[in-house]
Design a protein around this nucleic acid. Structure first.
Length: 256
DNA sequence: ATGGTCGGTAACCGA
């Protein structure tokens, strides 16, 4: 079984790339962020023709999350009871044997800003929601654009990014609090190349110079993590014309 | 050289 996350930065623009990628990689589940589509504009038929069912939670202009799966998703949850938030950033679904929690964590803009406070508050509430989900489901995967680089090795220039947004200590502590629930960062269960990133700024030729951050993650509950056989970042779509600024992250499992 | 580029949407905001 293969599970993936990808911040597509507009599904309208990226749909051809996403369809090509699905055809070649054939994940069982793909969690997407920043679809930037209202639900009435969602390309359900194109996705179905590619062999996938869709669930989605969209809004105008910003945010928007979706999950594609080879079997129909059930028990869809977009609004955790403890989180009163009009922004469409969460999509929890059951897909086959898995509880899948797709997150688009707020960016936070700048350390100390209102958006930063919103990000930290959101992360705190979402932690409680995930804890409840994990109690109810043995095989839970929490994945998406976390907008947090957990460690200095996830940052191309840790000195320049020190205590900056995406790298600040409170953000990293919020990420580690998820590990405290028993969730494991699947990427770090395997040996990885140095300079492994999942996002590169469009500006200043960030991708060409590999000036990136690893901010897209796949976390798994203990019972699921032990079945993980690989976790990789697929840089191929980032090399295409008109790419998303994020690359997909893919985890593979045996015994499912 | 303290900027740069995208996407959405229609002059800028958010990332």
């Amino acid at each position: 079984m293969k599970i993936a996350t990808w911040n597509v930065n507009s599904l309208r623009v990226r749909l051809p790339q996403v369809l090509d990628w699905l055809a070649s990689v054939q994940p069982d589940v793909l969690a997407m962020q920043e679809t930037k589509l209202t639900d009435d504009a969602f390309p359900v038929d194109d996705i179905r023709a590619a062999g996938y069912f869709s669930v989605y939670s969209g809004q105008k202009t910003y945010n928007g999350v979706a999950v594609f799966s080879k079997t129909p998703a059930e028990h869809v949850q977009t609004d955790p009871p403890n989180l009163d938030d009009p922004q469409r950033r969460i999509l929890a679904v059951t897909a086959g044997p898995l509880r899948v929690i797709n997150l688009y964590v707020p960016n936070g803009s700048e350390v100390g800003s209102d958006k930063y406070a919103y990000k930290l508050g959101w992360l705190s509430k979402i932690r409680d929601f995930i804890a409840c989900e994990m109690e109810a489901h043995r095989h839970t995967v929490v994945l998406g654009d976390f907008n947090i680089a957990p460690d200095d090795r996830d940052v191309h220039d840790p000195v320049a990014w020190r205590e900056k947004i995406l790298c600040s200590t409170p953000e990293r502590e919020a990420f580690r609090a998820l590990a405290g629930l028993g969730l494991s960062d699947l990427f770090r269960r395997f040996e990885q190349p140095e300079g492994s990133f999942s996002w590169w700024d469009y500006r200043a030729a960030g991708f060409r110079r590999n000036q990136g951050l690893r901010i897209d993650h796949i976390l798994a509950s203990p019972q699921l993590a032990e079945h993980c056989t690989a976790c990789t970042i697929d840089k191929a779509p980032r090399k295409l014309e008109r790419p998303s600024d994020h690359a997909p992250v893919v985890a593979e499992f045996d015994g499912f």
